[in-house]
């Protein structure tokens, strides 16, 4: 990123953000609609609070209690398949090209 852009963005962020040491503010309010949804190929829409959570195995809902504490409610287990389209265009599409070097980049917090 060029320096000019860096400066512009820094200014914008400086205005938007609070102090770097921010724990005094009510972060739980900001996070009120989501902590995490792991996985899936299911399509997302703009759905806010409470969020559906898709884990590798357990599936449930995360939401904040009236005390501002995160609460998880399991709704059992589900699995998803990838809904690939099959159209004329499919004839010219190849997949699986990226990922061949793959192992987790996070396994060493790299």
């Amino acid at each position: 990123m060029k320096k000019s852009q860096f400066i512009n963005i820094a200014l914008v962020v400086a205005v938007l953000s609070t102090s770097a040491c921010s724990s005094k503010e009510d972060k739980s309010a900001k996070n009120s609609h989501l902590y995490l949804r792991s996985d899936t190929n299911a399509h997302y829409t703009h759905v806010y609070h409470p969020y559906r959570y898709h884990g590798f195995s357990p599936v449930g809902l995360y939401f904040l209690s009236t005390l501002g504490r995160p609460v998880y409610r399991s709704t059992g287990y589900e699995s998803y398949s990838t809904p690939h389209s099959s159209t004329a265009r499919s004839q010219t599409i190849s997949r699986g090209g990226f990922g061949r070097s793959a192992f987790s980049v996070g396994s060493g917090r790299s």
Binding site: K30, H33, L34, D39, T40, N41, H43, Y44, H46, T82, R89, T92, I93, S94, R95, G96, G97, F98, G99, R100, A102
Partner: peptide, 20 residues
């Protein structure tokens, strides 16, 4: 999502390339 962007998850090996 919190910034109101429209998003979708995809595994890296599912990214396709249309040669046409």
């Amino acid at each position: 999502l919190e910034a109101e962007l429209v998003t979708e998850f995809i595994y890296i090996d599912e990214i396709g390339w249309d040669s046409k």
